[in-house]
Amino acid sequence: MAVLELKSLEMSYKTQEGTVRAIDGASLRVEKGDTVGIVGESGCGKTSIGLSILRLLPPNATIHGGQILFKGQNLLSLSGKDMRRIRWKNISMIFQAAMNALDPVYRVGDQLIEALVEHQNLTKKQASDKMEAVFQLVGLDPGRARNYPHEYSGGMKQRAIIAMSLICDPDIIIADEATTALDVLVQDRILASIEKIKAEFSMTMLYISHDIAVISEVCNKIAVMYAGNIVEHGDTMSLFKAPLHPYTQGLMHSFPKIHGKLERLEGIPGEPPRLTDSSPGCRFFPRCQQSLKKCNSIRPEFKEIEENHWVACHATRRSL
């Protein structure tokens, strides 16, 4: 059974400009031990997926279709109280704004201990030992546990947040742009820690980022999102070797390389669509260079084209 499964999830925000269809039928499976990356641009709905799973959406958002199955149990039908129990203990999260996730008036170590005492009924002593073990795991000096958050550097705070997310042995961690605001050297150290944790605990993760390079290093499966849709999903190797969706192909040609031959990049022409506009066809149609006639009127289905490689594109299917 998959640890986490989304079944044609639909979610929208009500705004002054109209209804924004942030997630427009997204399906995704996360098996135990997988690290699934969700990659996409800002506003493509990738953060909304994370928030929907945790049911931490703002009040103007509504989920009006689909299911979110956690170990076979639909999270959308749980009461608020049951959801709170699952959050953190079973599904934990690492957010981008790490600086704000730590309470500034408590010592960092105490915040972890409190979470343990609260959620796992450990004694203070057991909790303290576990806290130190997790500190070491994420590369923090346990001697700094008695410091306050403001005494930590940006990288250390991010490590503390990762420690927080690990402390209750969750079944799955959702990381949203976990290293985005960090300098490249700090990001590298954090990524190294994440890889180490993954290897040691065969951790299941959903890793959300706009940076396809980071995703390719951390994840063994990738879901590419565009304008509220998952347009391609497959394992990292095959997705990089032969990206099938024109958007994925364009994305691969949007990042300059640091090694290898220097070549002119083309990027993707045009701009991402406004999600308030609804069109019956493929959302990528206006920017697509391989489009067919029907792309403007019929939304392509999300289909398994090769084994474990899913694509939503009319053009791909024809070429096979």
């Binding site: 990288g155 990524l191 396809i212 390719s216 990089f240 390389k257 090694h259």
Partner: peptide, 25 residues
Amino acid sequence: RALISAVPIPDPMVKRRRVELSEAM
């Protein structure tokens, strides 16, 4: 050297060698 080695590479086939630096500043 450290800076260049820390840049993630968008290619799962390539395994990057990391330069470990102390966090002292």
